[in-house]
Amino acid sequence: MTPDDRRQGLARWAEAQLGAAGLELAPASNDASFRRYWRLWHGERSLIAMDAPPEKEDSARFVRIAEMLRAIGLDVPEILAADLEQGFLLISDLGRASYLDVLDEASVGRLYGEALDALVVLQARAPRTGLPPYDEALLRRELGIFTEWLLDGLLGRSAAEIEGGPLAAVWDHLVANALEQPRVCVHRDFHSRNLMASAPGPGILDFQDAVIGPVTYDLVSLLRDCYIAWPPERVEEWARGYLDRAQQAGILRPGDEDRFTRWMDLMGIQRHLKAAGIFARLKLRDARPGYLGDIPRTLGYVMTVAPAYPELAPLVDLVGEQVLPACNGLIARQKTD
C-alpha cells in the first residue's frame, strides 16, 4: 500500500470514528520514524491522526505506554480511538509548538524547569515492570549504529576494523558506565523536538521506545540536545538542579553526586554516537539529507566532553581528526550540489 493509499484509508477510518465526513488531514510533524502524523479538525477541536504501518511500528506498545504515563500525571496524548491491525490511531493534539520552536533566553529557564520536573515524575513514579531492559546487548547495538552507518556507510571506513582496534576498549567503558547507574524508566528521546510547549507542560511525545535503564540518559538527551546547544555553564547549572530534585525524590542517593558527572558525561557520549549514526542512516537509507547537518553539533559534544577522560583518547582522535572533518566536507559539498 502506498503512502497516499494509507493516508486515504486513515481519513476514512477517522471519519468513521468521529461520525464526520469530508475531514481534511494536514501534515502535523516531520517524524524520523515510519510513523506519520496528520492534524484534523472536528468541530472546534483539533486532533491528531497517526499512521503507524503495523509491519514497521508497534502501535500496541504506543497505546500501552501512553496510558501508563497519563496514569502518573504526565501530559502525553490521550488515545481516543485505535485500530491496531491497520496501525491507525486518533489521539489528542498537544499543540503546534515544540520546545525547539520557542526556546530562547527568555523562555528556556521556565521550559527546562518544567521538563526537569516532568523527568523526575517519570523516573520516580513510572512502573518498572513490563518494559524491556536497556541492557548490554542494546547498548552495543546502538553503538553499532555509529560504526555501521556513519563510519562504514557514510564515510567508507571499515566498521569491523575500527571496532576491533582501540575503540573496543572505549565501547567497554561506555557500556560499563551505563550499566552501573541506578535504573529508572527511560523515555529514550527526551529532547526539544519531542517536548511540546503546551499547558500543563511539557507535552511529551515519541515515548513508545521506553525502557528501564540508566538514570542520566534522558537528562543528557535534554541538556545536550542534538538539535540545540547551550553554554556548558548553563548545562551544569541545570544538571545540578536535576541532581537536587532526584535526591529529594529518592531517585539518587546521598553520595551519588561523586559519580554523577561521569555518569552523565559518558552516557551522553554513548547517546551522541548513536544519534550521529542515526542521522547518517536517515540520509543514506531514508533519503533525508537534512539530518546530515545535525551530525557536527552532535559529535561536537563528544569533542567537548571526552578529552577529560583519558580512556576515551582513541575516540577523541578518531572523531576529531577523521570523522568531523569528513562530515563537514560532505555537508559543504551537499550545499553546493
Rank of each mutant, 00 (worst) to 15 (best):
residue 281 R to A: 09
residue 208 Q to N: 07
residue 34 F to G: 11
residue 8 Q to S: 14
residue 201 G to A: 11
residue 108 V to S: 10
residue 143 L to C: 08
residue 237 E to W: 15
residue 234 R to L: 15
residue 120 V to M: 07
residue 16 A to W: 11
residue 146 F to K: 03
residue 247 Q to W: 04
residue 324 L to C: 09
residue 254 P to T: 06
residue 80 L to T: 11
residue 334 Q to D: 10
residue 251 I to E: 07
residue 108 V to K: 00
residue 313 A to R: 09
residue 42 H to L: 03
residue 116 L to D: 12
residue 22 G to L: 10
residue 333 R to K: 14
residue 36 R to D: 12
residue 305 V to P: 11
residue 15 E to M: 04
residue 211 V to E: 06
residue 73 G to W: 14
residue 234 R to S: 15
residue 8 Q to N: 13
residue 134 Y to K: 00
residue 310 P to R: 00
residue 298 T to A: 01
residue 90 L to H: 06
residue 57 E to S: 07
residue 235 V to C: 12
residue 9 G to M: 15
residue 304 T to K: 09
residue 145 I to R: 00
residue 305 V to W: 12
residue 192 S to M: 07
residue 258 D to W: 11
residue 301 Y to D: 12
residue 304 T to Q: 12
residue 37 Y to H: 04
residue 119 L to I: 02
residue 202 P to L: 03
residue 148 E to Y: 02
residue 61 R to E: 08
residue 300 G to N: 10
residue 247 Q to H: 02
residue 181 Q to T: 06
residue 239 A to E: 14
residue 55 E to R: 03
residue 2 T to Y: 06
residue 231 P to W: 11
residue 221 S to T: 12
residue 209 D to K: 00
residue 25 L to E: 15
residue 275 A to E: 01
residue 180 E to N: 06
residue 236 E to Y: 13
residue 50 M to E: 12
residue 150 L to P: 02
residue 239 A to F: 13
residue 178 A to M: 15
residue 128 R to D: 02
residue 170 V to E: 04
residue 263 W to Y: 13
residue 243 L to P: 08
residue 19 G to N: 12
residue 115 A to H: 08
residue 160 A to P: 13
residue 77 P to I: 10
residue 215 V to P: 01
residue 58 D to Y: 08
